[in-house]
Design a protein around this nucleic acid. Structure first.
Lengths: 342, 342
DNA sequence: CTGAAAGCGCTAACAA
DNA sequence: TTGTTAGCGCTTTCAG
């Protein structure tokens, strides 16, 4: 911690001007490198003064006069409780940064009061716009204050499509997951879907169907089961899966796959030799470290954040009222092999 | 996204004053609820005008005149790659918020250029101070720009102790972990420590020794082994652990424990019946969902963030040059039982 | 090429 | 009790 007890006034542009023997406007011009033709010597004197005095432009003053900040707000409902939000932040920040914007992050952990206060704080700082993001893909009601600002929804969407949104393309993700198995020759592919109604549930199922269809396979309802979308759900579903006599299983998410691994093991079965498994989400801590490592499909959080600010800044736009759907890329690892009984 | 194409100038205090038929200073007084005695009627007219016009104070203007912002910066090296940073952010934000400060978050993902630019951006916004945090506990060199601002290190510290820091108390954590086992009657406790030199390695080992000592047990070097601090390391250490004939194992972190679970299972051994296991970190995705759930010791990330801003704001201070050490609380779950051969 | 001056929206004396 | 008036640090015409 610096000890300067607020004694030394910060050095301002005037100080620099004085030291360089020029006017503030001249300093302003060299600092901002405007087109103004400033004499080489004056310019040099200014540079030196800036260096000597350790001058830092005051962003607040600049923003004030420019009539708008270089802030982009990001309101997230779960920075703390999941690794996903981090990726969104990262993507949003990289893109914002690239365009000279700074991220103002507010974490609400689902608390409405925190959310309201976060939003109004952002409004007061005259943010360029705000990204409103949720940790799992779902429909949301736009919080009141946000109608006052440019807003884009990230990983969520408004039911009425009135607000631009960017979300993961669950359908293509479901397709990729199924394909991972299909490509290895699997023909009997079970799908352990979540029982929670959600875009993820519907989209992934649809993708699964499409992939089967594209491979000339029938859609067999007996091959899909709904489970709790976590380890417990996967663990409890082993018997059901075994009864399906599938050679490969597409799990709604990595945690279900993790539970399935456990259950399979207790039955003396091995992944992928006895059963190939593919997850969804690509939750690093899990997927990359299970034994064997889990083939899965990635939720494109980084990309969601990035694209979010892109649409906010008007660099790209969703077509029509539908959310911008971002691809979920497959991440092959070691949990899939060719079916033995093929 | 709001469609107002920048056409409508934002409503300012003057607009409110005009609408209410009073002067700006009067408006200022009611907005800020200063001690000034304002007539009830005038106050009411102002309130209504604010409401009608949808006035929002301009934080930048306010900060400008007040000569300092209400920002606290947080520079993190790994928001994206670990769930830990999220907790630090959360804690920092909660505390900052409570004191009227807003968090300015910058994610550097280890990139030096990003770090420098993040820091200078924060300096330009005249942040009250900045929290510099790392995702694992270690010594750092204070980045250049940070000497210009009040800084506190979070989850890291400067080798020379010149900058205030708040870090996890690894030693007490090690003690707690060992105690979890000791309390259940274990007397032969193995320690799978990391092989990476770090405060975590030294501190946890020391804590382990202390706990043994406090229980009247000798410190037996044969009971500690150094492994890679991840799943693979735990998995590969099974034979070694078995050879130690310990009844309980303290793993350097949850991932090692996870690997150990896998290895044990392959040997037909069960946790906790055949071997009690305790981890460290309390990484939710892992610890809370392994089978059986993993007893562990929590790294207090939320608290680190919280205390970090407290130190920054001068609400508390580390004693002397040593970092403020935050306790690592034990989190008992189901991976420990009484030793069978007791 | 460079400087003077008018604000940006707000706060804080100081007057009235 | 309320209004007037300086600025905060900076950008930006507009004159020299």
């Amino acid at each position: 911690m610096k000890s300067e007890g607020g004694t030394h006034r910060a050095v301002t542009m005037r100080d620099v001007a004085q030291a360089a023997g020029v006017s503030v406007s001249t300093v302003s011009h060299v600092v901002n490198d405007t087109g103004a033709r400033i004499g080489a010597e004056a310019r040099e004197r200014v540079r030196r003064a800036i260096e000597d005095l350790g001058y830092r432009p005051n962003a607040m003053a600049k923003n004030l006069v420019k009539g708008g900040s270089r802030f982009v707000g990001l309101v997230a409902d779960a920075i703390a409780s999941t690794p996903f939000a981090g990726q969104i932040i990262h993507g949003a920040q990289d893109e914002a940064w690239q365009h000279g914007y700074v991220l103002l992050v507010a974490n609400t952990e689902g608390n409405e009061a925190a959310e309201a206060s976060a939003i109004s704080m952002m409004l007061e700082h005259k943010v360029r716009g705000v990204l409103y993001s949720t940790w799992y893909h779902r429909a949301v009601d736009l919080p009141a204050g946000l109608t006052e600002a440019d807003t884009v929804l990230v990983n969520c969407f408004s039911a009425d499509g009135s607000t631009p949104a960017v979300v993961p393309d669950e359908r293509s993700g479901g397709r990729e997951a199924a394909r991972l198995l299909l490509e290895q020759g699997h023909r009997r592919i079970a799908f352990l879907n979540t029982r929670t109604p959600s875009p993820a549930r519907d989209g992934r199922l649809e993708g699964y169907r499409e992939a089967l269809g594209a491979a000339g396979l029938p859609f067999d309802l007996d091959l899909v089961a709904d489970v709790r979308p976590d380890q417990e759900g996967g663990y409890a579903a082993v018997d059901k899966v075994l009864a399906m006599r599938a050679t490969g299983v597409f799990c709604h998410n990595d945690r279900v796959a993790m539970g399935l691994y456990d259950g399979l093991r207790e039955h003396g079965l091995r992944v992928p030799d006895d059963l190939s498994v593919v997850g969804f989400d690509n939750q690093e801590v899990i997927a990359a470290h299970l034994r064997p490592t889990l083939s899965t499909v990635a939720l494109p959080h980084y990309e969601l954040g990035r694209r979010g600010v892109r649409v906010l800044l008007g660099l790209e736009a969703p077509e029509g009222a539908a959310p911008l759907a971002v691809n979920c890329p497959p991440v092959p690892r070691s949990s899939i092999t060719r079916p033995s009984e093929s």
